[in-house]
Write a protein that binds this DNA or RNA. Structure first.
Length: 491
RNA sequence: CGGGAUGUAGCGUAGCCCGGUUAUCGCGCCUGGUUUGGGACCAGGAGGUCGCAAGUUCGAAUCUUGCCAUCCCGACCA
């Protein structure tokens, strides 16, 4: 069948692509490196977005929206920032088209050149800090806790659905604080929000840590991150939270008057997660039959598939299904009744497995006679007959069990792939045998980090928060080290 | 931007080396019917600038040249 997907064993990349495309989440579009997120994929994103948004608001943040275009001069105000993003910016140079005088369609009107080029935002620090200058005068204006849901563009050389597209959807929080300590606290708090969300809702375990200088966000003083592990043993950065110090405040001259009437620069943070999280979700959980979506964010948690036997069977089956739908909806369960008569039950079973719906209920005359339904668990593949009485409550319980076991399964997988390497040989052999996170000593220099990357493609994913101090020697240089860091090959 | 590969219907493809009627097959799509407990079947049907352009030739999907696009491997990156 054309919907058959490539197995992980055969080709991991193709497997991933098949899941995204055939699972109905997204597809490549006509525009290079950009994707179309289909309704099913967007429903998933909306569920994720709504939950994150709720958490942001609980922690005192509000939403706002800033322009898509950034004047070129803004971007260059913070030196490290511009250096980090300059190579991947889409630039607007003209504002008008006209008919080609030679009759070859339409051309850019050379007379419509912009005086100052506009950059399509790769991130919004600059335009936001330019605005914050006007918004912040006094300590009474602080903290300023703003988030925006937006799209950004980074002109990447090579793209992958969800993981790295030229345009992607995300949220970016940008906060301003009176003190260094308060800003650091905010940075850490938001990392915690991300970690909780990814673990509790996406059922993907993450390691919280800080980035080395080499992996730090352009313009940040410290970058905190959450790192997840995919089934092929590669790591994926799932979210970042940056302590920006006073870099942007100084670049955009954002000062406030303290209680003591002294002029001070404000302290900043920014933090973001993107549709990349969907990529993480797919690669952490899915199998060779398709997606497996965690119940708490799945667009549909349950699908009811009727099994008809002749035209007249539709009446009792549909009636029973409607009652079940009503019962489940009353319990807040997202349920879909698929009575589309164009496809037969077997087709639907396969289709919803591909789409990762956590629970499937099949309902036929035979079941109605016995007052049961057939319930199938997407995660384990287990099918069994269960009573229709109290089905809603059972489904609820089952969904919560699936959510938990998805997390446990992913966590066990990851725990087995966090390994300590004390020699270069074991470091390399771990990388080639399963990958995963390798906990090893590092001398703290960017040179060593770069050399290791050149030789093995492995990078330092993070220095875990609350890392235990331990004397040792660097795996690569043999120089002394105070603590282990986590290496991995990464997306 | 370097190295490699590929462009034939919505998708996947055969044909190309060795030029020759109306471009192959499967999936999907449309119509009608029979069906429905693991990707149904029968019958009929629609759908093509063979990536683009030029050249060679009586004749080009097929040979030549140029261009374009995409994918993979690097460099870059959330």
């Amino acid at each position: 069948m054309n919907k058959e997907i490539t197995t992980r064993e055969k080709d991991y990349s193709q497997w991933y692509n098949d899941l995204v495309i055939k699972g109905g989440l997204a597809d490549y579009s006509a525009v290079r490196g950009c994707m179309v997120i289909k309704p099913y994929g967007f429903a998933l994103w909306e569920n994720m977005r709504d939950e994150l948004d709720r958490k942001f608001k609980e922690t005192g943040h509000v939403n706002a929206y800033f322009p898509l275009f950034i004047p070129k001069s803004f971007l260059s105000k913070e030196a490290a920032h511009v250096e980090g993003f300059a190579k991947e910016c889409a630039v607007v140079t003209h504002y008008r088209l006209k008919n080609d005088p030679d009759g070859n369609g339409i051309i850019v009107d050379p007379d419509a050149k912009l005086e100052e080029e506009l950059i399509v935002r790769p991130t919004s620090e600059t335009i936001i800090w330019h605005t914050y200058k006007d918004w912040i005068q006094s300590y009474r204006d602080l903290p300023l806790l703003i988030n925006q849901w937006a799209n950004v563009v980074r002109w990447e050389m090579r793209t992958r659905l969800f993981l790295r597209t030229a345009e992607f959807l995300w949220q970016e929080g940008h906060t301003a604080h009176a003190t260094r300590g308060e800003a650091i606290e905010e940075t850490e708090k938001m990392l915690e929000v991300y970690a909780d969300f990814v673990e509790d809702f996406m059922a993907v375990p993450v390691i919280k840590g800080i980035k080395t200088a080499g992996e730090r966000f352009a313009g940040a003083e410290e970058t905190y991150c959450i790192e997840a592990l995919m089934q092929d043993g590669k790591a994926l950065q799932a979210g970042t939270s940056h302590f920006l110090g006073q870099n942007f405040a100084k670049a955009f001259d954002v000062q406030y008057l303290t209680k003591e009437n002294k002029l001070e620069y404000v302290w900043a943070t920014s933090w973001g997660v993107s549709t990349r999280l969907i990529g993480a979700l797919i690669m952490a959980h899915s199998d060779d039959k398709g997606l497996i979506l965690p119940p708490r964010i799945a667009p549909f948690q349950v699908v009811i598939v009727p099994v008809y036997k002749g035209e007249e069977s539709k009446v009792p089956i549909n009636a029973k299904a409607a009652a079940l739908v009503q019962e489940m909806k009353a319990l807040g369960i997202r349920v879909k009744f698929d009575d589309n008569d164009n496809n037969r039950p077997g087709w639907k079973f396969a289709e919803y497995e591909l789409k990762g719906v956590p629970l499937r209920i099949a309902l036929g005359l035979r079941d109605i006679e016995n007052n049961v339904v057939e319930m199938a668990d997407r995660l384990t593949g287990e099918k069994k007959s269960v009573s229709m009485d109290g089905l809603g409550a059972l489904v609820q319980k089952k969904l919560s069990e699936i959510q938990d076991s998805m997390f446990t399964k992913a966590k066990n997988f990851r725990e087995n792939l966090i390994r300590k390497a004390d020699t270069w040989e074991s470091f390399v052999s771990f990388l080639d045998d399963g990958g995963g996170f390798i906990s090893a000593h590092w001398d703290g220099t960017t040179e060593t980090e770069d050399s290791i990357k050149d030789k093995t493609k492995a990078t330092i994913r993070c220095i875990p928060l609350n890392n235990t101090m331990e004397d040792g020697v660097c795996i690569f240089s043999g120089k002394p080290s105070k603590q282990r860091v986590l290496f991995a090959r990464a997306y």
